[in-house]
Computed example of a mutant assay.
Amino acid sequence: MSHSPVPPPVTVLGLGPMGQALAAAFLGAGHPTTVWNRTAGKAADLVVRGAVLAGTAAEAVAASPLVVVCVLDHDAVHAILGPAAGELAGRTLVNLTAVAPDRARATAAWAADLGADYLDGAIMVPTTLIGGPSSLVLYSGPGSVYERHRPALACLGGTAVHLGADPGRAAAHDVALLDLFWSTMSGIVHAFALASAEDISASDLAPYSKGIVSLLPDIIDEFADKIDRGDHSPDGSDLLSAATAMEHIIHTARGHGLDTGVLTAAHAVARRAVDAGRGSSSFALLAETIGGRPA
């Protein structure tokens, strides 16, 4: 009788909501899974499902050839792994902690000095989607290392994308996409505050807000093409009209005593390009203005 091979062991360091979801996905795919967290009680449900709770981070690292860390930030990664550094040689460290690109590169160099392979990853979905078809995780680091562990990482579900050998590339995608998300979220709450100041309920504004958001996918594609080609011809409206619209919003918001810091900063960038004689250009030009290139 033939038996299917047992999937290789995996260690998960950090058992916040995302770490627990990652460990559960590995367990669900049959990987012997060792877990560790500074608060041991967070492992209880995973232990019931078959995970092994290590007594120390070093014991957890020593238990598996593939070590996945997902904690709060860069400092927490090194606070946890520092005492376990002696166990990392010959293993692969996959850092799924949200970090800045330069810190991902620094951690990759640190791991290499210890004799460990390194992949950096950016999780682009909430915990509830981990292990399912809608999951999306971006990875960067040596292609050979990614290919070696791709079957194990695949159990995190959905789509996995390897972005190249630069260990900071996944984090670079992450921060850029989070920039888009949180800038948009800031605009949403400011719009609701402005509407409320004019006695418009959030529920009344919401359907029209969704109409505005529905325009964004086409705008993203159009702007991406323009920016990559360096084409800043106007696209139905121009920077001067955009800056003028921003002024109306700022005037109204200030009249109600609302904080206008975010939009004032955005208006200043647009106004800088207009004052440089580029008022007839596309709003996409501001990607260059923000980058410090001459308007």
Rank of each mutant, 00 (worst) to 15 (best):
V175D: 04
V175M: 13
V175W: 05
A176S: 13
A176P: 01
L177S: 02
L177Y: 09
L177P: 01
L178G: 06
L178T: 06
L178R: 06
L178K: 07
D179C: 09
D179T: 14
D179N: 11
L180F: 15
L180N: 04
F181M: 15
F181D: 05
F181W: 15
F181A: 14
W182C: 07
W182K: 04
W182T: 10
S183H: 14
S183M: 14
T184C: 14
M185A: 15
M185K: 06
S186D: 13
G187V: 07
G187I: 06
I188M: 13
I188K: 02
V189Y: 13
V189E: 08
V189A: 08
H190C: 04
H190M: 05
H190V: 01
H190P: 01
A191G: 11
A191L: 08
A191M: 04
F192W: 10
F192L: 15
A193P: 03
L194C: 11
L194A: 15
S196G: 14
S196V: 02
S196W: 00
A197H: 05
A197L: 03
A197W: 07
A197I: 01
E198T: 00
E198W: 07
E198G: 00
D199W: 00
D199N: 10
D199R: 09
D199F: 00
D199E: 10
D199C: 00
I200W: 05
S201Q: 05
S201G: 14
S201F: 01
S201T: 15
A202E: 11
S203C: 01
S203Q: 14
D204G: 10
D204K: 12
D204F: 01
L205T: 03
L205M: 12
L205N: 08
A206S: 12
A206T: 12
A206L: 15
P207V: 10
P207F: 09
Y208Q: 12
Y208R: 12
S209V: 10
S209K: 01
S209Q: 11
S209Y: 15
K210I: 00
G211W: 06
G211Q: 14
G211D: 14
I212S: 11
I212Y: 13
V213N: 04
V213P: 06
V213D: 07
V213Y: 03
S214M: 04
L215A: 13
L215F: 02
L215D: 15
L216K: 01
L216S: 03
